[in-house]
Computed example of a mutant assay.
Amino acid sequence: MMEEADDGGRWDFLDRVGPDTSSCIFKLLDHPADLARAAAVSRSWRRFVIDNEFCKRLCRQLCPEVANFTSVAVVTRRPEAAAAAPGEPSRDADLRARETDHAVYCRLGGALVSAKTSTEDCILNCVAASSTDNFPQETVDNTLEPEERVYGHSSYWSSAGQDDPDVPESLIYRLSSDLCLVDEIRIRPFRAYFQPDNPIYSSRAVRIRMGHSMLPPGTESFVSDENENLKAMADENYTWTYTSPEFPENVLQTFKLPRPALCIGGIVKFELLGRIQKQATDDRYYICICHAQVMGRPLSSDLMVNISNPADYSILKYLPGASNVTGEDILNNDGSDSTEWHSLVSRYWQMRHLAGTMRNHMLGPEQRNLLLGPVQFVDEDDYMNIEEYMNIHMDGFMDM
């Protein structure tokens, strides 16, 4: 703060203690709101916070996956608002770039802190399983059902049988947002009540990977009753930005991550390592999962990653005002919105809305695949509002 000097003037705290000591003090601020308040004290304090990238440093301290972002960008709703001043000196351009970094990371820090306050199941759909014993009756899609019995039948995914107990299996899921802060994994192994001694077909251990798909936009597919989607298991289809430690599994169901981890890209892979239980009828090892959940919180809709080019997932994008956008706003776009802003917000809104729709109406795999096709929003002349749009696309599914 400013202090009274001997000659009646005022001292700036930063000048009084020097930049090195000031930096050590500012690094002790461990909440984004504290840095925001510090930057509001004076112009010199704001410049000190911006020039030393304290907000970026704090974000990486809160969540190390943030280091995967190589750059940030502000995407405005109106194209003309994003235009840079013609003939802008390089010094001013550098200042604007630092201020942009500060604004984006300040917003990200606030989102990371608020995302820790509550959790929900973030799984939107099943992408693939490394094997299935009896497809589609034992499809991985069964792991989305919260109940152990559906329509009078046991609901679970089963791997193919193996003679070697060390053969692993993997399950891949798509989350409800491209940016989710995840803090807990829940897995319920299947207990075969119809077999002697009611064996539990768990894996020996579980490991989690999170990242994004490298497939071209619009080509991602999901498990359905007709398609096991095994091609989606190939490692070259994904970039993993987080890998958890191995968690021993038997009857345990909840695995708390060592710290909340940011999933950049909305893909989670469950690695089921090793087998415990043999099936008596064929003397082979199996892994069976009844239910799976990824507990966390999608970040705010004004923070996104690039969806048009998988190679650009390292660019964090801030869309001011996107949090207040509704589905009707998207449908009623008159063409004045910038293409990138509209595309990013549309995708976020669609995925979140579909997540709620599937939970409310228990849609099956075919209906999920239909609704999760390429993002294509209709014009307002075709449908009056988003509820009517969704009802038309789900015609015939609501009575399941």
Rank of each mutant, 00 (worst) to 15 (best):
D183Q: 15
A73G: 03
S244I: 01
V305G: 01
A355N: 12
S158G: 14
R297M: 14
F397L: 13
S314L: 05
R188G: 05
N250C: 09
L230K: 06
L257H: 10
S213P: 04
K116C: 11
N385I: 07
P365H: 03
T243D: 06
L316G: 06
S300R: 12
I276E: 06
T139F: 04
Q277F: 00
D30N: 15
P320S: 10
A322H: 03
W240K: 12
I307Y: 07
P320F: 04
G18S: 06
T219H: 02
L331V: 10
D164R: 03
A97W: 09
Q376F: 09
V41A: 01
N134C: 15
L354R: 06
V17T: 05
L28D: 08
I330S: 12
V268S: 05
M390E: 11
L35K: 02
E65G: 06
R91G: 07
L230D: 01
K27S: 14
R347Q: 04
A40M: 07
E120D: 11
Q350M: 15
N360W: 06
S170Q: 12
E220G: 04
F270A: 08
P260H: 09
E99Q: 15
S300T: 14
T143G: 07
V206N: 01
P217I: 02
N333F: 08
L62D: 01
Y238E: 04
V305K: 02
A83F: 12
L370R: 02
D20E: 15
T339I: 15
C106Y: 03
S177K: 03
R57N: 13
Q61A: 14
D235M: 04
T143H: 07
L303H: 01
R259F: 14
D178N: 09
F26L: 12
Y318F: 15
D399H: 04
R46M: 04
N250F: 11
R275N: 02
N306D: 15
R204A: 13
P136M: 13
L58S: 06
R186N: 02
F397E: 11
N306K: 13
E138F: 12
G321A: 07
Q293P: 00
R37M: 11
S170C: 13
V375R: 05
T239Q: 10
L62V: 05
S118G: 10
M358V: 07
R368H: 00
P19E: 06
A129V: 09
D312W: 01
G327W: 03
L331M: 15
D121W: 00
G335V: 04
G218Q: 09
E226H: 09
L144I: 04
K269H: 03
